[in-house]
């Protein structure tokens, strides 16, 4: 918990869905700071607000109240397009359900964020191939998702998330759909990216085994941070 050097700083973030009688407060005032290079696991039971927090951290959603600074810049008041540009340039997403484009080769899936960034074809192909090699899928560039195993699909998704060299990788239950062997491989990969490339990782999980890979574990309960502690070291 460093002060001024924080990459991400949430202050008194709350999120309310609906209004009046039907209003539901998912987050009730969260303070959280993440320094560059950290590997943070977010845990908590269903309905604890961890997914809501993740959506706000990923700039997919905006808080009802509170302040969110990303690299010292306030993002809570940004427009939809500004947040899209922030995601495009600074954030990478990995989802539980992989979320690859069907009937599209691994290479084209990984290229997708670069197309939106407007990279020329040559450097785009090169970067996508490099990212696939980095996740251990060299030689699988032209396979489409239905020709790949679950573990391989999640590797493609990770390649797509890191191909833009984002500051933060947001992973939402990245091993939720995988068996234990593939889960360990994916976690090793994410930990390696955090360690070797210095990418800050925010990961939602409900499995303590997976949280053990993180350097820090934040527990959510009922829309509040219940505990926030550093792990002894990488598993």
């Amino acid at each position: 918990m460093t002060g001024a050097a924080a990459l991400i700083r949430l202050s008194a973030i709350s999120k309310t869905y609906g209004s009046g009688q039907a209003a539901f407060q998912a987050l009730k005032g969260i303070d959280l700071s993440v320094a560059a290079g950290e590997f943070v696991a977010i845990m908590g039971p269903s309905g604890s607000g961890k997914s809501t927090a993740m959506n706000i951290l990923g700039c997919l959603d905006t808080p009802t109240t509170g302040r969110y600074e990303f690299q010292g810049v306030a993002v809570e008041g940004m427009t939809r397009n500004q947040r899209a540009l922030l995601r495009r340039h600074y954030l990478g997403f990995v989802f539980q359900g992989f979320n690859l484009l069907a009937r599209t080769t691994a290479l084209e899936n990984v290229e997708l964020p670069l197309i939106y960034r407007g990279d020329p074809a040559g450097s785009r192909h090169q970067a996508a191939r490099a990212a696939l090699e980095q996740v251990g899928l060299k030689g699988w560039e032209h396979h489409s998702p239905n020709e790949l195993s679950g573990g391989q699909q999640q590797r493609v998704a990770i390649a797509r998330a890191i191909v833009t060299r984002p500051a933060v990788l947001l992973a939402d239950e990245p091993t939720g759909n995988l068996d234990s062997r593939n889960s360990r491989e994916i976690m090793d990969l994410i930990a390696a990216l955090n360690r070797d490339l210095g990418i800050t990782v925010l990961m939602v999980t409900h499995e303590p085994d997976m949280a053990a890979y993180a350097s820090r574990v934040v527990h959510f309960v009922d829309g509040l941070v219940e505990s926030d502690r550093h792990n002894g070291g990488h598993a």
Partner: peptide, 16 residues
């Protein structure tokens, strides 16, 4: 819908 969600999450602008 899901595909569009992926594109938006990755950083596609509304007009794109």
């Amino acid at each position: 819908t899901r595909e569009i969600g992926i594109r938006l999450a990755i950083g596609a602008l509304e007009r794109e």
